[in-house]
Amino acid sequence: MEKSLVINPDKCTGCLQCEMACSYENEGVFNPAKSRIKVFTFHQEGRFVPYTCTQCSEAWCQQACPVDAISLNLVTGAKEVNESSCVGCKVCTISCPFGTINYNQSSGKVIKCDLCGGDPKCASACPTQAITYVDADQTGLDKMRQWATQTDNATSNTASNA
């Protein structure tokens, strides 16, 4: 059963453990600025919202890549950036309507969530279960995925590049 990340903002306390864990796993440093998951703070509402790639089936990033540097991991369902192929053109960063693939100036390549190969560290680091990694059918289609299908052409068609 394919799993997916499920985010429940109501449980998030804004502790940023997820960002630290992500950055350490992927960049080898504890630096939230290099995290692939970001917690957004809404001061007025006193609310925290963790946010990262949903591995959407439209795979805007993958479709837009001019050099075949983003591919589907058939085991996890993640869309993964192949560092050796990425030229750093950043076209994927404007193509992803969720803003979840970003340019990393220090490497000259783009970075995005790859589900840590099937063991996402943000989920294991989260002390309040605001981020969990569970069977995909339990999650249903989350709000963002639904939203994705409204936003562009031909998204319900099978002929995507994903």
Binding site: T93, C96, P97, F98, G99, N102, T151
Partner: peptide, 10 residues
Amino acid sequence: HTQHIGVVRG
């Protein structure tokens, strides 16, 4: 400004 810039498309 580059971080999360894709949301503009969204």
